[in-house]
Write a protein that binds this DNA or RNA. Structure first.
Lengths: 127, 127
DNA sequence: GTGGGTGCAAAACCTTTGCATCTGC
DNA sequence: GCAGATGCAAAGGTTTTGCACCCAC
């Protein structure tokens, strides 16, 4: 090692310790400021970029055009809450059989997917 | 009317006449140049923006951070071909029952979705 | 000294807006 | 003349890069 990757460590700490699971660069910066870790966008960018290259973090691009990052955990899909705007992780319910039908009918080969639902999260849902 | 919306018409013509079904602003500009319709990005942008407001065209944001537009036709999902990079429309195979299970298990309410598959399109698939 | 990590500034990229101009009624 | 469409230029927002500096070994 040359110099301790303070920012990378702080970012991983944030991602592992917060309820939020999808972070923009701005989210990181704001949270780091709160933790009194002043960091430049470029440093955050490069730290996250490295984590992505190491497959520790995964890149997401959604409908607001801002890049988000989440921990590379087990596959899951997402719900964008139309009320509070949050991005929530939801378990994946797609089955290989679903793809098999599509592959047969459309002549394609499916190797992965990302499903983004829109609707209401648990908190915004009226009981 | 005040002035004929040349660009809007040209854009609709392109979208209805080409195999490509998801267009970036740059795609529009390049195609218009080929048709000898020189148009500025701002004009294209405003023309498409208007079509979106009229619900003739739908806005898409995918994993490369560029805004794309497609005709507002029946709902479908997409395949991003990992070989040629094209974005292909594929029929939707999700069923209400799938969402019902998710709503019960995750406590959310689903009102819409967008599924992006990755894999090989019909052309890139090795027979 | 060397190899990475960081900060600062600026470039790059794409989208969006302001303003003047032009067209067709 | 008016309303809407277009072109040009420039602003905006975010991501990305260049370069100098700094720290730990």
């Amino acid at each position: 090692m040359a110099r301790k990757p303070v920012i990378s460590a702080a970012i991983l700490g944030l991602m592992r310790g917060h309820a939020r699971h999808a972070w923009t660069l701005e989210d990181f910066r704001a949270a780091l400021v709160e933790d009194e870790v002043a960091a430049d966008f470029s440093s955050i960018f490069r730290a996250v970029e490295k984590l992505v290259a190491e497959h520790v973090v995964r890149k997401l691009i959604l409908d607001d055009g801002r890049t988000r990052f989440e921990l590379s955990e087990a596959h899951h899909d997402h719900l964008r809450c139309t009320s509070c705007g949050e991005l929530i992780a939801v378990p994946c319910f797609l089955k290989p059989a679903d793809f098999a039908v599509l592959e047969r009918d459309a002549g394609i080969v499916v190797s992965g997917h990302h499903l983004v639902l829109s609707g209401l999260c648990r908190e915004c849902r009226v009981p």
